Amino acid sequence: MYLLLLFPLLFWLPGSSYEITGPEEVNGLEQSSLTVQCHYDPGWETYRKWWCRGADWSNCEIIVITTGTEGAMKKDRVSIRDDQRSHVITVTMEKLRREDTGVYWCGIERAGITADHGIQVKVTVDTVAARCHYGPRWEAYMKQWCGEADESSCTILVQTTGSKQAKKNRAYIDQEKRTFTVTLQN
């Protein structure tokens, strides 16, 4: 009789649920910010939440972790916040770099239990690129990429010299078939 009464209570105890959900994949642009939101079941509000990187769950490196409160924590370019009323973990990665592309995990530290629980999130950082087209007879003319909207005060980031390629600062031009592409790089 006591066993029958105790059994249903196990499903309602805080920490008895371990469900966490989030996006499978997210994309961001270089030098921009990316926000990931993971949702968790009630009962885990005061547990620490973390964001780690690594393809293998057992070896992922924790980048940032909460204290078990709603306050935001930040380390380098990554911050994490736990909204305990909405049961949402929000991770923000700033000033994205191409090398930030990889497998990450959004998780909950399950103190006293053998393993934490998390969800895998694949992060892809895309390069910013622009492709410009020009007509016949313009192949030998200089092409320029400008860093300002106002043409009169434009700072030239890169320009061609009639050759097929040019590179300067964080911009790269590659001309082919009456097009040239500017790719912003780190």
Rank of each mutant, 00 (worst) to 15 (best):
W50C: 03
W138S: 08
V128L: 12
M73S: 10
S16R: 08
P14I: 11
K143I: 04
K168E: 12
A129F: 15
I108G: 00
L10R: 11
G162E: 08
G71M: 07
R131K: 10
E176P: 04
W50I: 05
V88S: 05
I20P: 00
T92H: 01
C146P: 07
V103L: 02
W138T: 06
C146V: 10
C106M: 09
P8I: 07
K95Y: 07
C60K: 00
E61A: 03
V91A: 02
S32P: 00
V125E: 01
S33C: 08
L3H: 10
G147W: 10
L184P: 02
M73E: 13
Q185W: 11
K49I: 04
V91F: 03
R81M: 13
W51H: 12
Q185P: 00
E45F: 00
L34H: 01
E151K: 10
I156K: 09
L13R: 12
Y2M: 09
R48Y: 06
L5C: 14
I80N: 04
T35G: 04
A111C: 09
V121F: 05
D126N: 14
E148S: 13
I156T: 15
D83E: 15
R98Q: 05
M142H: 10
S16W: 09
L13D: 08
K143F: 02
Q165T: 15
N169C: 06
A130T: 14
Q37T: 14
W44M: 13
S153Q: 14
I119W: 08
S17T: 10
T92C: 04
R77H: 14
G118Y: 01
D83P: 07
K143T: 01
S33G: 12
